[in-house]
Design a protein around this nucleic acid. Sequence first.
DNA 1: AATGAATGAGTGTTCATTCAT
DNA 2: CATGAATGAACACTCATTCAT
Lengths: 173, 173, 173, 173
Amino acid sequence: MDRRSQILTIAGHLFSQRGYHATSMRELARHLNLQGGSLYAYIQSKEELLLEVVRQAAERFQRVLEELPRGDPATRMKALVKGHLRVIAEELPRATVFFHEWKHLSPPLLEVRLATLFVLSALNWTYQWYRPEGPLSLDELSEAYAKLVLKALGVAASPEGEHSEEGGEDGEA
Amino acid sequence: MDRRSQILTIAGHLFSQRGYHATSMRELARHLNLQGGSLYAYIQSKEELLLEVVRQAAERFQRVLEELPRGDPATRMKALVKGHLRVIAEELPRATVFFHEWKHLSPPLLEVRLATLFVLSALNWTYQWYRPEGPLSLDELSEAYAKLVLKALGVAASPEGEHSEEGGEDGEA
Amino acid sequence: MDRRSQILTIAGHLFSQRGYHATSMRELARHLNLQGGSLYAYIQSKEELLLEVVRQAAERFQRVLEELPRGDPATRMKALVKGHLRVIAEELPRATVFFHEWKHLSPPLLEVRLATLFVLSALNWTYQWYRPEGPLSLDELSEAYAKLVLKALGVAASPEGEHSEEGGEDGEA
Amino acid sequence: MDRRSQILTIAGHLFSQRGYHATSMRELARHLNLQGGSLYAYIQSKEELLLEVVRQAAERFQRVLEELPRGDPATRMKALVKGHLRVIAEELPRATVFFHEWKHLSPPLLEVRLATLFVLSALNWTYQWYRPEGPLSLDELSEAYAKLVLKALGVAASPEGEHSEEGGEDGEA
DNA sequence: AATGAATGAGTGTTCATTCAT
DNA sequence: CATGAATGAACACTCATTCAT
């Protein structure tokens, strides 16, 4: 992992813990055993750092959507829930930054149906309280959430044997 | 509305739009047609401002829980959803600040069941996208969300006539 | 005692305790149960306050010199010591300010003989440690100091006509 | 001499000339051809500056006491006077700060005999008027003061063993 | 005679950023 | 590649002072 990537990773952690404005470049540098000024050999500005961190998180969410398996709505929804939560769990720091800063960076949400919003809302909020090192495994969480989602949408959870009647919906962040 | 209340209101707006650290006292003052220093006739410090804004939001959420009507689970849940969303809608700026700062202020979430977390997650995320002046009325939103919640929990939405098959669960924050 | 005199008295106390720059006009006003701005009905500026306080202390020292009794040197010296110390004791706050600020206000000391400097030094330093409410009366202090001064100058203490034999002492601060 | 020492030295001078509160960090910086903020690469706070300046002065006085030669009281007293005055002369700025701030820092004077107080008073006051670049050498001053002290205490000045007859003098402030 | 609201300059301090070495 | 010294603009906050009421 090269210096720039190191910087981005640590920056993600610090931004998510303290917030972007509350994190100083000197503090970031100290975590890398560097002097403040030395960062500027690798980056242009603090803002570039934020953009990059957010961009990487956004990309991962995007990829989940793109790689949804073909199949019946219930299966797809389950994959969505699991994938989305996995990104949040694996990218907790970046995701945190993403959720706190998306306003400044992304076009407004449009035309998203209520049920989708409801589902994504529940999923997105997870970063506020979920801790991978806690007692709840990601699989257990995904399983439980997927069931709740499918029930809320009136779709029976498929593999474990239910059958659906309503059409599935795609969510977009 | 006296000066102090004015200050708190505007501070709530700015903190929620730009974040606490990104909002300067001079900017806050400018919105009140004052010089930066003049604020300190009414407040002790910037941090007091944050605490007060957050406290007021927390109080309103608390009151929703305390004033839940007696009755069957479906009715209570509906009131919870509606009440919670109403607070978010009416206190959007304060709620935003609250959600972004609760880490620093509240005891850790404990022993909250998954279904409750799921529901509250969906509700809490609302502040990220809901705009009272938008096309969706608060009643419409509450109605739709409450239905989804009740379905997810396996409880039929009562007055409007659905019927449930699984046991209901109570949520708490 | 009119308002202006009250203000000067309290100002003397505060300036002597905290120093001129460390004393704020608001604090001074609070001690008089006033608002900060209200002081300006009685005074022109904070600096005027300092000048006045210092001037009043200087005047009292001046008067001691002018009112020295005629007589032999020992008698006059005794009166000087007593008078000087009395001013310090009675005007402790003002004297403190005076001693800390005289540089800014008075022409440089010139042509003062060493013995005089020595004596005045000892007397002037008194304000740093003497407290009228302490165990040492002003008379006792004056008596002892006058004796030491007279001995140092090789003049026998006249009226009471003592001769000393006190051993040397080690001083420690 | 490194930057930090430079800063401490200049700070000592300015604090002694203008007083601690009346000296701004920007002014201190200007004397070092720096911007205000640049000082903070070398120090933690303005108060640290004061503490350090005072501490260094206090240490030097302490060392005089510890290094007093063994011998008869007259010899020791002479060494004390000379040592004490030398510190004042050599550390004029620091000593000035020390004398103006000792209240905030040192335990109250206790159990010190009057003669000692008298002597130290005279010595300590010296910082108010003595200027090393003036017409009076430190040796001349020490010699004269030591004699006065010894006489005041009724101890003949030993090695040089003089006897005095100087007449009384009038002092003026 | 006094208030309370406000000002504008100043304070100590932090910070992102630059650059010669 | 990294430092260390420095900058200059910003920040939160304090203060002496003014003035309409």
